[in-house]
């Protein structure tokens, strides 16, 4: 997901810069074309002013043409010394770059196109506000990025859901292992586990089974050992107690048969095999 987003952003950035460059060229081309249209008007105005006649407003068709060039355009005519001979209405002479040179140039908040007119030995300087280009570029960027902005949350949600459902069995196993006590050695439920994890759980279950069997054998051994020890002790104790009772009843201590039997009981190894008994287990009918 992250790689996809990075690639997308990278692609959009490269495309954005390429289109921005093309847009710049289109704007410059339009500015050059506009300049070509302004030159006769500006020269006519310069000639009228030079001859002392009244300067008329620009023809309506020319003004409309300027507006269609996306943004305000100002123009100046300068002589070789930089003196302003003619300027469009509302143009601020303080913003002119000094000195004029042929070609395009950015200065302040304007994009300038300057051209020397050898016939009149004057410079035509046309300025276009840069924010027009910025707005166009911003619109371009927004257009390119908006699908990504809409797609990223959706893709993130989809990835979250997919990863969540894929890892749910793993989390289940993790929780089961967390809550297990030390004595809980039953196999782990491996249903629904991903194929990569199933062999691991299978191996763990095998280990648990072997561990449980070993512990059961150990317990059985301890129980049987206790059983084998307790039986002769119980016999000896009971026989001794019985002998004492009988001795008290007869009024004299004696080296009784019970004492001898009790002593023998302690040393007689018990050979009862608990496993054999377990194998012989069966229900008993009392009918």
């Amino acid at each position: 997901m992250t790689l996809f987003a990075v690639l997308w952003i990278g692609g959009v950035t490269i495309t954005g810069f390429a289109i921005y460059h093309e847009l710049d060229e289109i704007f410059d081309s339009a500015l050059r074309e506009t300049t070509g249209q302004i030159i006769p008007i500006a020269l006519q105005e310069y000639r009228l002013k030079s001859s002392g006649q009244t300067v008329a407003a620009l023809p309506a068709a020319v003004a409309t043409s300027f507006q269609s060039r996306r943004g305000h355009v100002h123009y100046f005519l300068q002589d070789s010394n930089g003196a302003i001979l003619v300027q469009s209405k509302g143009a601020d002479a303080g913003l002119l770059p000094d000195p004029p040179t042929n070609g395009f140039r950015n200065y302040g908040e304007f994009r300038y196109y300057m051209r020397f007119l050898p016939s009149e030995r004057v410079w035509i300087v046309v300025a276009q506000e840069l924010h027009e280009r910025s707005e166009a570029t911003l619109s371009l960027w927004l257009g390119l990025a908006s699908p990504l902005l809409a797609f990223l949350p959706l893709a993130g949600f989809a990835v979250w859901r997919t990863v969540g459902s894929a890892t749910a069995p793993i989390r289940r196993v993790s929780r089961e292992l967390e809550v297990r006590g030390g004595d809980h050695l039953e196999p782990i439920d491996d249903t629904g586990l991903p194929g990569e994890l199933a062999p691991v759980i299978s191996a763990v279950n095998t280990l648990l089974t072997r561990l449980k069997a070993a512990l059961d054998q150990e317990r059985a051994f301890a129980a049987n050992a206790a059983h084998e020890l307790r039986n002769p002790i119980a016999s000896a104790r009971a026989q001794v107690q019985l002998a004492r009772q009988q001795a008290r009843g007869h009024g004299r201590p004696r080296e009784s048969r019970e004492y001898r039997l009790a002593a023998r009981a302690v040393w007689t190894p018990h050979r009862k095999d608990a496993a054999d008994v377990a194998r012989r287990r069966r229900p008993w009918s009392l009918a």
Partner: peptide
């Protein structure tokens, strides 16, 4: 267990 059984029974 003969010895134990005998003792318990006798008692």
């Amino acid at each position: 267990e003969p010895l134990l059984g005998e003792a318990v029974a006798t008692h």
